[in-house]
Nucleic acid binder design. Structure first.
Length: 435
DNA sequence: TCTGGGGTCCTAGGACCC
DNA sequence: TCTGGGGTCCTAGGACCC
């Protein structure tokens, strides 16, 4: 028990970028500093990131662009999303954060957990150092929340963001139970990680209105009336870990590629083009993680927002054996598409989802026993796919495509990106000019 | 004209078996 | 043939996350 008692208390940090996508744009265009900026989703549909100045204009997360466009007159700057840039900036930021601890879990493009347990220095000191280094080396402003569990780290991060006097760092680790409850008793229940827009009203009607209320609620009742996840959240809010630590990202179990269209699509031929492109993108992701899929799902749908004839359907096409071959996946996707397509509708969106994704096993160990001929095909197909992926990586992502996807420039269904900024860090011809 | 995309996990319910 | 219970597996759908 003696050794046990001296073990340092758990200390988990959550570091995330403030208005991350906007911050990435600002790194390369310093003139955006101090101005209201938003980043628009694919298709310039809605706001998916907002600077503090944009929030001050009253712009909500997810606000449709056509409803807020008039704010351009008041200085609002809108930028079409550039996910290649954000991914690149994310890699740099995560590497710098990873210098502070050997145990890092990258949770999303702009969020990273870091295990600070046993490291020298107070949480506040380490958090402040992280913020300064990321800002100086990468140019991204961050906030740091620290707690005994992941859920408390998330909550502390939320406090660090909302209380200016904390200067971007909030450390809830090392607090006694009573102090901890005092610290979280003003946090509304809907701000707790794992409580969303459906759960919040339901909990409120049972008298659970704050994070502290949830922490103190009866876990058996939570388990019975809601779910095991909510019971775990309550446990974590008390400082008792209930969620696992994931050092390496688990391979995806499903892989999607889907887009809304820039213009309504009526013709099967155009949908085939789009579905072909989505399938080849998804297949690339599949091969990147060295996996095979056993089924392909295709879906199409008309607009959720327009009145008029409505149609949405999806089909799952099982494959004879798991594969990563674009042509095989494509045949399945297109047959699925033909089975759900109905003429006479204005389709607004389509998507492809690879299902039952598992790590690839050696060709000899899969498929039909004694099926030498198809094994040979699989080997040839594997080599061809590797060449296609190499060419695409080297010369640009659409260099080599299945013929039915055609050239993007010919596709009228492609998304709008009216506010696109150059891909400074990822495309040579866009490398920033000094001026 | 104009409302994102990509994921995970849990649960309920049905099919099937003994 | 009917009834019942217990168990597993699978799938669809919901809720949540960023």
């Amino acid at each position: 028990m003696g050794a046990q008692a001296r073990r340092p208390p758990p200390r988990i940090a959550l570091i995330d970028g403030n208005s991350f996508y906007c911050a990435c744009e600002r790194v390369l265009r310093p003139s955006l500093e101090g101005r209201p900026v938003i980043v628009l989703s694919n298709n310039d549909g809605c706001a998916i990131a907002r600077t503090a100045e944009a929030k001050a204009l009253g712009i909500a997360m997810g606000a449709p662009w056509f409803k807020i466009q008039h704010l351009e007159a008041r200085g609002l700057i809108a930028i079409s999303a550039n996910f290649a840039l954000y991914g690149d900036m994310s890699d740099r930021m995560m590497r710098v954060i990873g210098q502070f601890s050997p145990a890092q879990e990258i949770y999303s493009i702009d969020e990273s957990f870091l295990d600070l347990t046993g490291l020298p220095g107070t949480g506040r000191d380490i958090g402040t150092q992280i913020r300064h280094r990321v800002l100086r080396w990468v140019g991204i402003p961050t906030c740091v929340g620290i707690g005994a569990t992941k859920t408390l780290a998330k909550l502390a991060n939320h406090l660090a963001k909302s209380l200016p006097r904390l200067q971007g760092v909030c450390d809830l680790s090392g607090l006694g139970r009573a102090e901890l409850m005092r610290a979280i008793r003003h946090v509304p229940i809907q701000d707790v990680w794992g409580v969303g827009r459906k759960l919040a009203p339901s909990l409120e009607s049972s008298g659970i209105r704050t994070a502290a209320d949830l922490a103190l609620a009866d876990r058996h009742v939570l388990r019975r009336r809601y779910s095991i996840m909510l019971a775990k959240t309550a446990q974590e809010l008390c400082g008792e870990p209930a969620l696992d630590w994931e050092d390496a990202p688990a391979p995806k179990q499903q892989i999607m590629s889907t887009r809304s269209f820039g213009l309504p699509v009526r013709e099967l031929a155009e949908l085939e083009q789009a579905v072909s492109l989505f399938t080849s993108r998804a297949a690339e992701k599949l091969r990147l993680q060295h996996s095979h899929a056993s089924a392909v799902q295709v879906y199409i749908r008309t607009s959720r927002f327009k009145t008029g004839p409505w149609h949405a359907d999806s089909a799952v096409v099982p494959l004879d054996s798991p594969t990563d071959s674009t042509p095989t996946l494509l045949r399945a996707a297109l047959s699925g598409l033909r089975s759900v397509f109905r003429p006479g509708f204005d389709y607004a969106k389509a998507g492809v989802c690879l299902l039952d994704v598992r790590p690839a096993v050696p060709i000899a160990a899969q498929g039909e026993l004694f099926d030498f001929e198809s094994s040979g095909d699989a080997a040839r197909s594997g080599r061809a796919m590797a060449v296609v992926d190499q060419l695409n990586q080297r010369f640009g992502s659409r260099m080599v495509q299945v013929a039915s996807a055609l050239h993007e420039a010919d596709a009228r269904w492609l998304m709008r990106q009216a506010h696109r900024s150059p891909s400074y860090t990822t495309v040579w011809r866009d490398v920033v000019e000094v001026g």
